[in-house]
Write a protein that binds this DNA or RNA. Structure first.
Lengths: 213, 213
DNA sequence: CCTACCGATCGGTAGG
DNA sequence: CCTACCGATCGGTAGG
């Protein structure tokens, strides 16, 4: 019996969106369930039994797909950072050569917010659960995290050289302020709220006086 | 045997700063230990046994001071918000009547950063562990949290009326951006870094073009 | 404030 | 993918 068939036969299957149930292999269902749990319950409460229940299988069966709980957690945390990294990188690459640093900042903010709120279980898991990971796991996951933060370091440098950041202001402070603002969005954003586009524009305007797109 | 005597006699007592050991009752030691654990390990990993070990007592003895684990956690989370609330309120009250909304914003940012990084175990616990609290406890702790956020809602309203926030920008976006920036500071600030004063000034200048104090 | 203990639950495994 | 189970650990309590 496959994992999908097992899920389809159990009432617990309703815990996972049915449209993703068919498209994805068992591993993806386990990752989705783990992402939700990491976001809403934290690392310790993300038990193999809770993951299994959301997927519609038994706890022991998880070890057919992954070698350990921490291997699943690592994948989820890293995917949460990677999906935003790719979205921001793609948005910056799509800009014309004549785009100003201000255009690039606004595009980066918008891509970060859109992608992180779109895949909010994964990105929120990356942010909320990170500090509570076991030390070795946290160290491993820091690599992808740093890689993404480097993008913002370059953006800040360009913005500063173009005069969008006052000379007396530390570039570190500017970068960390902006990252704080966008990372915090997962804590308060609800779909009923203002469109993400508008929020991104507001953020850019407050920080850099950027024009609306 | 009192809790302090027990702590002084055990090697575990080194986990708690000795200068606070004598001044404080057993309850305060338990709260300090819980704050550290909530910040660095999260709610589930903050076990009664781990708290007891940091204080230098046995797990069962905790229940001589508090009725339950959640009662301790509630105190810590609420104190984390209250200490910042009081600091910001005091800073605003200390301003002269002729202070501009820009002065008030910078004073609030500075007081928030100074107090939250000063009592960082409590405030970080409030921020990091909040989402993972049991539902009833989270609901209880939301009261103090909302009370503090209201201060910023008023600050934003005044700043907007004074022209420090562009008319097209949503006041909610401005408030949440700023709260995200200051709440995130606990994630990256290290004592060796730039002085908190300077960081607060940079934040204010980026967001409102405020002059340095 | 401690010892000893309760029922429940944890990550992981053996052997189907 | 499941059943049954391992040793370890959880919050909390009884009775000193």
């Amino acid at each position: 019996m496959t994992i999908s068939q097992a899920a389809a036969r159990t009432a617990k299957a309703s815990a996972v969106k049915s449209e993703t149930l068919d498209q994805n292999g068992g591993a993806r269902q386990i990752l989705n369930a783990t992402a939700w749990l990491l976001r809403h319950r934290g690392y310790e409460a993300t038990t193999t039994r809770a993951i299994a229940e959301r997927v519609g299988i038994k706890a022991g069966s998880i070890y057919h797909h992954f070698p350990s709980k921490d291997a699943i957690v690592e994948r989820v945390i890293n995917e949460g950072v990677l999906v935003v990294n790719k979205a921001v990188t793609a948005a910056l690459d799509a800009l014309p050569d004549k785009a100003t640093p201000r255009d690039r900042l606004q595009a980066a903010i918008k891509a970060h917010l859109l992608s992180s709120l779109e895949h909010s279980d994964y990105t929120s898991a990356s942010i909320r659960a990170f500090a509570f990971l076991p030390p070795e796991l946290r160290k491993t996951c820091r690599v992808e995290r740093r890689r993404y933060e480097d993008i913002w370091q370059h953006l800040m440098r360009d913005a500063s050289q173009a005069g969008y950041i006052p000379k007396e202001v530390s570039l570190d402070a500017a970068r960390l302020m902006l990252l704080g603002a966008v990372n915090w969005a997962g804590e308060w954003y609800r779909p009923g709220r203002a469109p993400i586009d508008k929020i991104a524009g507001d953020f850019a305007q407050i920080a850099f006086g950027a024009r609306r797109t």
